[in-house]
Simulated assay, not measured.
Amino acid sequence: MTDPALILQLARNRGLMIATAESCTGGLIAGRLTDVAGSSDVVDRGFVTYSNAAKIQMLGIHPATLEAHGAVSEEIAAEMAQGAFERSDARLTVSVTGIAGPGGSEFKPEGRVCFGITTAQGTRTETVEFGAIGRDKVRAATVEHALSLLKNALRR
């Protein structure tokens, strides 16, 4: 498991604040980071944007992107991470949007999660297929992967 204290220390060492933009995890990533005492000098804020309206209002997601690609897409993950970057004091943001389950579709199966990471150098996205392992396990795996992405971004 990725140690949130390590992420916070790496961010401190680089003088960076972190923000999260979360859909399917409902704030769990920010929660893991802020479980660590003293995290307030590194964690700027967390955006919990579960609904499409919240994504538009809080992060500036383009309705046309939602219509063209759907909420669970790398395009939306990118716009979420960029929106958090633009609307916070953070210089490192992570976003997640996915289908934790139960349910899904042929085209967007349960366990699919799209991630975005934004730094001053730009935005990267990726999709991970965790599979139909159950809502709690998908959410836990998503948090772990997001923390790993933050750690890797801080080590570059």
Rank of each mutant, 00 (worst) to 15 (best):
S73A: 12
S88Q: 14
E126C: 04
F85Y: 15
A68L: 08
G83A: 00
A120N: 12
G83P: 04
R91I: 10
T93P: 08
A71I: 01
E126S: 04
T93K: 12
E126I: 00
G122A: 00
A78S: 06
P63F: 00
L33G: 10
K108F: 14
S105Y: 03
E79W: 14
R139G: 02
P109H: 01
V96S: 02
G60S: 01
T65P: 08
G31P: 02
A53Q: 15
N13I: 03
V128H: 11
I29K: 11
T119G: 04
E67S: 12
G27I: 02
G104V: 02
G70Y: 14
A120I: 05
G15Y: 08
S51L: 03
T97V: 04
G15W: 06
S95Q: 07
Y50P: 01
I117P: 10
I61F: 14
C24L: 08
N13E: 15
M80I: 07
A141W: 11
A81H: 06
F107A: 11
T119N: 10
D41E: 15
V143P: 08
G27V: 09
G27H: 04
V143N: 14
I76E: 08
D44L: 02
Q121H: 04
V113S: 00
G103C: 08
Q57A: 15
G116S: 13
L16C: 01
G46L: 04
H145D: 08
G27M: 05
G70P: 15
T65N: 05
S88M: 07
T93L: 04
R45A: 05
L16M: 00
G103D: 10
V138P: 10
T25V: 11
A53Y: 07
I61P: 09
A120T: 12
L59E: 11
S73V: 05
L59C: 07
